Amino acid sequence: MLDIVILVCLGLITLALLCTLIRIFRGPDLPDRILALDTLYINSIALIMLLGLYLKSDLFFEAALLIAVMGFVSTVAVAKHLMRGNIIE
């Protein structure tokens, strides 16, 4: 039963990823595209975690943790670049 639920959730997260990709390409301005990139890495974390649950492998959880850290750092760097024009002071 849990395998069926995980497969349904994998399909829904994949649909969310596709909608986010559409927002990245059709976003009206730069902040919308940055927000879509932030949502993209959060959705990819969810997809990797569900895949790890489905395949019963711990390696996927470590990969999701690395993506989370890199996504947070990149979001902060891009936001700082938009506000001040430079990243390193």
Rank of each mutant, 00 (worst) to 15 (best):
D58Q: 11
Y41V: 00
S57Q: 14
L82A: 11
T20H: 14
I42P: 03
I67H: 07
T20Y: 07
M1C: 15
K56C: 01
D38L: 04
R84G: 11
V69T: 03
F72V: 15
V5Q: 02
A77G: 09
L50D: 09
A63E: 01
L82H: 13
R23V: 13
R26W: 07
R33G: 03
G27C: 11
L50W: 07
I34D: 00
S44K: 04
G85N: 06
S44I: 03
A46M: 11
S57G: 07
A64V: 07
G52R: 00
A68L: 10
L21T: 12
G27M: 03
I42V: 14
I42A: 08
L65K: 09
I6Y: 03
L30N: 09
L10G: 01
D32F: 13
I87F: 03
L53P: 00
E89K: 15
V76E: 04
I48K: 02
L65W: 10
T75F: 14
I6V: 08
I22S: 13
D38Q: 04
L7V: 12
G52C: 06
I13W: 05
E62P: 10
K80V: 03
I13K: 00
L12R: 07
A77T: 09
Y54N: 11
I6K: 03
D38Y: 09
P31K: 05
S74N: 08
F60N: 05
A68R: 05
I45Y: 01
L40W: 01
S57I: 08
L10H: 08
M83L: 15
Y41E: 05
T39L: 15
H81D: 15
L82I: 10
K80Y: 01
S74F: 15
R33D: 02
L7Y: 14
E62N: 14
T14W: 15
V73Q: 13
G85L: 07
L51D: 02
R23Y: 02
V5K: 05
V76M: 07
M49L: 10
C9Y: 04
L18Q: 10
D29N: 14
I48M: 03
S44C: 12
L21E: 07
L40F: 06
I24P: 00
S57V: 12
F72W: 08
M70Q: 12
L50N: 09
V8T: 12
F60A: 03
T39S: 09
V76R: 06
L66C: 14
A68G: 11
D3V: 14
M49F: 14
L40Y: 01
